[in-house]
């Protein structure tokens, strides 16, 4: 990783050197003012696959940012992530202060399905890419990628990874019908009350009525294990 980065730095310096040379050349030949350069764009393709058996995923939020994390293990979820994790509503995540550019999944991502989402930013080379989605047949489970460093990605280079699921810690995992918004239950989504441990951690999985939680609306089919998504991020511009 380190050597890749230093190689990239060397290439970057070489690039600056070449740019200076061509600028000199322009000065010699052209009398008029130089035309405004085209704004430089950084475009990424984010391909996501839902690896679960029966956990549809809410439309993905994809954001580019230079600082911050969407969530931190052991710390309280921010309101934006609480909303996403309890109801699948990604709107507040897209509007976080640190966000340079954002994009969204087209629709619910069904188990076994894949989707490619593009996100683009002009002029600023972004450092991080994050994405998040709710596992909708749960109280407050979500998955995603948290501040993936994309700053060293060359054109057409990609990073692939699989991710497990997290528990927002903002709602007890009661699995009661009234508290789960997904199709298995049709209950409530967001609730501002935080009646759980109030810190983000790895999700313990759902128990279900078939495995000893009498009050659960979920069945054995809704259980999941890690990983829950596969993600490939490719820089295409």
């Amino acid at each position: 990783m380190k050597s890749l980065k230093s190689l990239y730095l060397k290439l970057l310096m070489a690039g600056i050197f070449l740019t200076l040379l061509s600028a000199c050349h322009d000065d010699d030949d052209n009398e008029g003012p130089m035309p405004d350069p085209e704004p430089r764009q950084y475009r990424y393709q984010v391909s996501v696959t839902n690896l679960t058996n029966a956990q549809p995923m809410s439309p993905f939020a994809v954001v580019l940012h230079n600082e911050g994390m969407l969530w931190n293990i052991g710390e309280s979820a921010n309101d934006a992530m609480e909303n996403l994790a309890e109801s699948g509503d990604k709107s507040q995540v897209l509007e976080l202060d640190v966000v340079l550019a954002s994009s969204s999944g087209a629709d619910i991502l069904m188990p076994g399905s894949s989707e490619t989402i593009e996100v683009v930013v002009a002029d600023i080379e972004p450092v991080y890419l994050s994405a998040a989605t709710m596992l909708v047949n749960t109280n407050d489970a979500f998955t995603g990628i948290n501040a993936l460093d994309v700053s060293h990605l060359a054109m057409n280079e990609s990073i692939s990874l699989v991710m497990g699921s997290y528990d927002a810690g903002t709602e007890k995992n009661s699995e009661i019908a009234e508290t789960i918004p997904g199709p298995a239950a049709g209950g409530e989504g967001f609730n501002a009350e935080r009646d759980d441990v109030d810190f983000v951690a790895a999700h313990p999985g759902v128990v279900s009525m078939d495995d000893g939680l009498t009050q659960s609306v979920l069945t054995q089919a809704h259980r999941f294990d890690n990983p829950t998504i596969r993600v490939t991020v490719t820089r295409i511009e």
Binding site: G205, V207, N226
Partner: peptide, 22 residues
Amino acid sequence: GDDDPNGGKSDLDNTVHRWLNP
């Protein structure tokens, strides 16, 4: 775990004391 704090097979709570790796 189980969902019976005063009986059942386990003294552990199936909504609290389970985990998935890692």
